[in-house]
Design a protein around this nucleic acid. Structure first.
Length: 493
RNA sequence: GGUUCCGUGGCCGAGUGGCUAGGCAGUGCUCUGCAAAAGCAUCUACAUCAGUUCGAAUCUGAUCGGAACCUCCA
């Protein structure tokens, strides 16, 4: 990475783009809030994890040694955050009449399957909340020792008011707790254990019926949801680390609480760069399970959903997401997906053409412009849409070379091929799904024979037979396309 | 009500003061037995009003409209 061309990251904390400078180069610590495994992940979740997949891929591409931690929340996430009510996983377990850990396993497996379909790279460490109960208890003890938490009836709450005397609770989300004091009156009525409305549970007393619970200095209970991320990021990335990512909807209260917990326990502001991905919307409204407007990945692929005209491949969707900035909302629509599908195919065709180009003595094209423009785009806070736009400009150049309107020499060709491989496949993480012709050797050979016969008919100007073959194959979803001196075939579904 | 953000051509979606974003669709052309595909070229824009400026989609103010968060959600 050259000094003249640094990577900029939009830091939610400062609300500005900042030059990315790791705390301990060449090492980079990246923490991303993972899923709560109590139900299927939907497409909105996928978008968020995809955003940070590209971050991870690009940092790795730049040569950093990245430790990527993404947790699995398998306990402690309560139904609502008045810190009352059931644990999400336990509730689901009762519904499905199985063990909570079966729920955890089932949906963890599902999460992994889904994320693999979209070609997300697994994190370096994928820790679970239940695997770090001891560390969570230790962190609570440090917070209590520092005077930022109090115990009531076997539960421990973070003392936001006390914390705010010395620190800035709300610095990430721009909230001023004084402004919200009026909410205090109503919120504190009704026998709430909290001293202050903004206080949040870091340990919650468990009822006798609760299955997943642990012994602690404050009795039997479960850790608070916000705590696990603080604990696991500290354990695996240190008290201060480089990048913390998550969805916009986690900014408050979740990430705000993480900062408070880390500062409260260890006196260290934990994160240098906060990154927040925006939401996937459907008809302008956030995709969410509770609103019932979410797509499950298999519904998308099969097209089996009231809002979908047809199915789309995971790579089409990946490309679709990458054509929007991660900080903007993306609205899900059939038209947009169809456009993405065709655009993606065009890009893949361009890459295929690039790899078949024959070099000339001299270059008439400016390869460095294509390379530097797309690189600059990515350096501008992972601006994948402009990166892709520049890659499309490159496709135009590639086609011109292929049509002998421009020329390229060997060294330029090699650079361009490496650049496209690096950007399209390694960084954007796209996969050319069209390589389906080699699925079955027998059908390939059969098709060779059929196409050969048809070509003979064409040579004899027997158009009737040639068209009959094409029409009959079409009924089997095999489409024939004639090029100048050969024919290609493609089987769909 | 508070916090944060957005409003760009038929659709999606970049762009922060002057210079073509890009994709899809449309239109024209090339290729072609036909078809399809592909390639090339190309039209339509910056919510409204006022201001700053030689010059604004880009800065300021107001208005209208929309979203997320403030309860669990990536």
């Amino acid at each position: 990475m050259s000094v003249s061309n640094p990577l900029y990251i939009y830091n939610s904390l400062s609300r500005k783009k900042e030059v990315f400078e790791p705390l301990n180069p060449p090492f980079v610590g990246l923490y991303v809030c993972g899923p709560t495994v109590y139900s299927d992940v939907h497409l909105g979740n996928v978008r968020s994890f995809l955003t940070f997949d590209v971050v991870y891929r690009y940092l790795t591409y730049l040569g950093y040694n990245v430790r990527y931690v993404r947790n699995i929340t398998d306990v402690g996430h309560l139904i609502d955050d008045s810190d009352e009510g059931d644990d999400k996983i336990e509730k689901r377990a009762r519904l499905e009449k199985i063990e909570p850990m079966e729920i955890v396993q089932k949906y963890t497996n599902g999460f992994h399957d889904t994320v693999t379909q979209f070609n997300l790279i697994p994190p370096s460490i994928e820790p679970t909340a239940t695997g770090h109960i001891v560390e969570q208890i230790e962190m609570i003890q440090r917070i209590i020792k520092n005077g930022f938490a109090y115990e009531v009836n076997g539960s421990v709450y973070f003392d936001v008011k006390k914390y705010s005397e010395k620190h800035n609770y709300g610095e990430l989300s721009g909230r001023k707790i004084e402004d919200q004091l009026e909410q205090t009156r109503e919120s504190l009525e009704g026998g709430n254990e909290k001293k202050f409305f903004a206080d949040f549970a870091i340990w919650k007393n468990a009822s006798p019926e609760t299955i997943m619970k642990w012994d602690s200095p404050w009795g039997t209970g479960v850790p608070g949801w916000h705590l696990e991320c603080s604990v696991m990021s500290t354990k695996y990335l240190g008290q201060a680390f480089d990048i913390h990512g998550g969805g916009m909807d986690l900014k408050f209260p979740h990430h705000e609480c993480e900062i408070a917990q880390s500062v409260g326990a260890d006196g260290v502001n934990p994160v240098k760069y906060w990154m927040h991905g925006n939401m996937l919307t459907v008809n302008g409204t956030k995709m969410s399970k509770s609103l019932g407007n979410s797509f499950l990945p298999h519904e998308l692929i099969s097209g089996d959903h009231p809002l979908l005209d047809k199915g789309y491949t995971p790579m089409t969707v990946r490309f679709f997401f990458l054509q929007a900035n991660y900080k903007s909302t993306v609205d899900f629509s059939n038209e947009a997906l169809q456009a993405a599908e065709k655009g993606f195919n065009r890009l893949m065709a361009g890459v295929e053409t690039l790899n078949k180009l024959t070099p000339s003595e001299v270059s008439s094209v400016d390869v460095n412009a294509i390379i530097s423009k797309s690189t600059e785009s990515l350096n501008d806070d992972f601006n994948t849409p402009t990166t892709i736009a520049h890659l499309f400009d490159g496709v135009k150049t590639i086609n011109a070379i292929n049509d002998n309107k421009e020329t390229i020499n060997q060294s330029d060709l090699t650079s361009l091929q490496q650049h496209y491989k690096g950007f399209v496949f390694d960084i954007l993480g796209l996969v050319n799904e069209k390589d389906n012709s080699s699925d079955n050797e027998l059908s390939n050979e059969l098709m060779d024979i059929i196409i050969d016969l048809r070509n003979q008919s064409k040579e004899n100007k027997d158009w009737g037979t040639a068209d009959l073959i094409r029409d009959e194959l079409k009924k089997l979803n095999i489409s024939i396309k004639d090029t100048k001196d050969s024919s290609t075939w493609n089987y769909e579904k």
